[in-house]
């Protein structure tokens, strides 16, 4: 009896939750579906949901007309490069803060976080000017540096919270056995830290991929990543929904897949340990 009631309640919960979930996901689903329609079907009234002539033509046209691959490569280089560089710089910093804390560690961590709170627009012109002076405007290298600096505080913080979970006694034991600092990091710490480092890289890759202030303002033809590629589709002219959808799907698909793996790290990464 009790079991039946529970199951009934569970069924109701399931129904409501799926309805709400599909409603929230609908814009993404609809975009993906539209990308397989012809332009005429994409704007037909009433809209067609599943029963249309599926076509891959839009994808071919998008690649041909606006060279999607070049933007994709820029996105991969910029997001990947900034994340890897940031992680390499952050690992030693987070390591020392987690295992050799001093009185100032907390202040340094909070200060790093505060740099993340600076509104980008407040320093837009100085960065723009520096980029012109240094010849970095519209270069992949310049974007790698800027996005690395933007995400560095988050990378340090995430790594710090992961490293802190590693028991310090293990390091002391290694030290007793005569391991020097280099060996300690390489053979004791790293294997235990790999999952945390991987999650950090994953989330920050996503954040860098989707960054849409500096990528829009500091790139043009050469270094533009997918965020700028999509923005170039904002012309209001008529029949292009299916192509817009194909371009959008190609821009978000890689990240949606990575995102599914990183959903657990999202809370840790973006609340700086304030919510556990």
């Amino acid at each position: 009896m009790a079991c039946a009631v529970t199951n009934q309640r569970k069924a109701v919960n399931t129904l409501i939750a799926w309805a709400v979930g599909l409603l929230i996901f609908f814009p993404i689903l609809w975009t993906i579906l539209t990308s397989f329609k012809t332009e005429a079907q994409a704007i037909s009234d009433p809209p067609v949901f599943l029963f249309f002539d599926w076509t891959l033509e839009n994808y071919a046209v998008v690649q041909e007309r606006s060279d999607y691959l070049r933007y994709l490569i820029n996105s991969v280089i910029i997001a990947g490069g900034s994340t890897i560089l940031g992680t390499l710089i952050a690992i030693p910093a987070a390591w020392s803060m987690a295992f050799v804390p001093s009185k100032r560690t907390k202040d340094i961590l909070l200060w790093m976080l505060s740099t993340k709170m600076l509104p980008a627009v407040g320093v837009l012109y100085p960065i723009y000017l520096l980029f012109i002076q240094l010849g970095l405007l519209d270069s992949r290298f310049g974007m790698v540096i800027v996005l690395m600096l933007i995400n560095l505080p988050i990378i340090v913080w995430m790594l710090y919270t992961y490293f802190r979970e590693i028991p310090g006694e293990i390091l002391e034991a290694a030290r007793m056995d005569g391991a020097n600092l280099r060996n300690e990091i390489l053979y004791v710490l790293t294997p235990m830290a790999v999952p945390g480092i991987a999650s950090t890289i994953l989330l920050n890759f996503i954040l860098a991929w989707n960054e849409a202030f500096w990528t829009l303002n500091l790139t043009a033809a050469q270094a533009a990543p997918l965020t700028a590629f999509i923005a170039s589709y904002s012309s209001p002219e008529g029949l292009f929904y299916a192509k817009l959808s194909a371009a959008s799907t190609m821009a978000i698909a890689p990240i949606l897949i990575l995102g599914w793996f990183s959903q657990k790290q999202l809370v840790r990464g973006l609340t700086f340990g304030a919510v556990k």
Partner: peptide
């Protein structure tokens, strides 16, 4: 699965969601 469906919008880049909402919706 429901969790994933609800979280998904967070991973959509801002220019895509702005453009999709503006035109398709």
């Amino acid at each position: 699965v429901v969790r994933i469906l609800i979280i998904a919008p967070f991973f959509v880049m801002p220019t895509v969601s702005a453009l999709v909402w503006k035109n398709i919706f």
